[in-house]
Nucleic acid binder design. Structure first.
Lengths: 184, 184
DNA sequence: TATCTAAGGTGATCAATAACATCTAAATGT
DNA sequence: ACATTTAGATGTTATTGATCACCTTAGATA
């Protein structure tokens, strides 16, 4: 229909990115269509290409949005408080997080598809991993970033497997085991 | 063409499953088409439905094949030797494994899609996780299966993130960190 | 053993859905 | 005011999982 003002266009773009960041985590990247994203953003799919050159470009930016969304758990800046970091760890391997795909950590949800995707996707994910590692190293007073990478690997792998095996006794044992034995 | 014997049909089915187990790990479940699987198996895609009711059924069995493939690293039976288990762990978080998608461990490759898939998919994956956990608990003399689940989570998460961030300094630090600090 | 039935595999096709291109009308800025 | 720009609607093409008629023959039956 009609043309929108510049401010409205920026809002549209933000809505598209928010919808994409939510949908790719819920249904996967390949499982998300441009039409779905646009409908979730309140538009028809034809207008999409006024905002992004391709689905691949959208996904690259949406990964960054999802990553930033996860990092908003921490106060802004490069470091993190001890409380934030311990809360991040103890909230990670939980049933609530396992169920919350739309707003969950993008690393376990997207890494496999990102590995097969474009360089831009991996760049966006790498930025998130690097920032999270810094937050954990700082907030938990770890001896180096490698310790933070190993810790993050345990959390990510635990959540991934928990979702993959589905709800039940094994998932319960896994999630409680991670939470209980990882907290340094 | 002509009708095949029962033995030939069984071979065809095995070829289809082998092709599917390879392709879903390489390109993901959604990224794999029935036609591709059949071509890889040396047939046309029309004949697929003489063997399986649907792609979903194929994938459920292909996950089991991939899982069994990974478990063939261990000697048959329920337990594992110490050598097998330590070799499994020290070979897991390596660049070679990170690159070998077609024959790699299905857990980091498929869990995210399986989590969104059918119960049968999760059943197949859960069986693999359970068996691997038993092998590790036994072979490494861990104090309980929870320890094995946490170890497996670290390996799986590390490999997943390594692939997601792509080759480079961060991947190197991550893979070497996992290998070096995980070996109990 | 002769016959009939049922089944494996092919290739064409279907309906649904994907990504992407084009078109139209309205808002912008000189 | 008016030419330009462009958001969003409409159309087009390609691909997907699945079904089809058909040809051939393996395997059960009498």
């Amino acid at each position: 229909m009609a043309r929108k003002s510049l401010a409205e266009k920026a809002e549209s773009r933000t809505r598209i990115l928010g919808a994409a960041a939510k949908l790719i985590r819920t249904n996967g990247i390949e499982g998300t269509t441009v039409a779905e994203v646009m409908e979730e953003a309140g538009m028809t799919h034809g207008g999409f290409y006024r905002h992004f050159d391709s689905k691949e470009d959208l996904v690259a930016e949406a990964i960054s949005v999802a990553v930033q969304d996860a990092l908003n758990f921490f106060s802004s800046g490069d470091s993190a408080t001890h409380e934030e970091a311990t809360a991040y760890v103890s909230n990670y391997a939980t049933k609530e997080h396992a169920r919350a795909m739309a707003s969950g950590c993008p690393i376990p949800l997207l890494s496999a598809e990102v590995a097969r995707g474009s360089d831009a996707w991996r760049d966006a994910l790498r930025a998130g991993v690097t920032k999270t590692t810094k937050k954990l190293t700082d907030g938990l007073n770890l001896k180096d970033e490698t310790d933070a990478l190993v810790l993050l690997s345990t959390l990510v792998g635990g959540l991934l497997i928990a979702r993959g095996v589905g709800e039940g006794a094994l998932q319960d044992k896994l999630l409680s085991g991670i939470t209980e034995r990882v907290q340094a």
